[in-house]
């Protein structure tokens, strides 16, 4: 048996870390809204106080998962197998590096919109993503970019009259 198969599985510390962040956020929120007027604090406190208790309990469960390294058998407040978790199935099978790449490209598109405006950013983003990231041939990248431009300019700008902000550069 090779060394690779003997290695222990990595610790599942992500859920505990996220639960801790949520707990800290809600504790700060509850402490902050204590001195608000009645109408402003009534609903947030009614939601916030039970949530702090539940988030604390969830954190304890997650920490127990980390300690025991047995993530499948533990009871949890979240109904992972039956609850409607939006778009989680796809994320689970995508490598973390690819997830960061996807977010970076999304950020690049928003930066492009900020600097060049919507229409140039659409062309630049489509071309750059398809040619450099997806390794598609240049003619296909240009075709998709042109179709996207026609769709956005024709439908959103001309027919629906959505005003596009000008970019910083042009």
């Amino acid at each position: 048996m090779s060394m690779k198969t003997l290695r222990k599985p990595p610790l599942e510390s992500g859920p505990a870390l996220f639960s801790l962040i949520v707990l800290i956020f809600f504790v700060i929120a509850v402490v902050t809204i204590r001195h608000y007027p009645l109408r402003a604090r009534l609903f947030p406190l009614t939601i916030g106080l039970p949530f702090v208790v539940l988030a604390g309990y969830q954190l304890l469960l997650d920490l127990r998962l980390v300690a025991h390294r047995a993530p499948t058998d533990m009871p949890t407040l979240r109904s992972q197998e039956s609850g409607p978790v939006l778009a989680s199935e796809g994320v689970a099978v995508i490598k973390r590096q690819d997830q960061f790449k996807a977010m970076a490209w999304l950020g690049a598109f928003v930066l492009g919109v900020w600097w060049t405006g919507f229409l140039p950013a659409i062309v630049l983003y489509s071309l750059a993503y398809l040619y450099f990231e997806a390794r598609e041939p240049l003619w296909l990248a240009a075709l998709v970019a042109a179709l996207c431009l026609i769709l956005v300019y024709g439908l959103f700008n001309r027919i629906l009259n959505v005003p596009f902000l000008p970019g910083l550069l042009f």
Binding site: P15, F18, S88, A92, V110
Partner: peptide, 18 residues
């Protein structure tokens, strides 16, 4: 983008978004 990052973190933290 911020909510996208939050959604990604919540999914990795196994918190349902619905």
């Amino acid at each position: 983008i911020l909510f996208g990052v939050f959604g990604w973190a919540a999914t990795r933290g196994r918190w349902p978004l619905a």
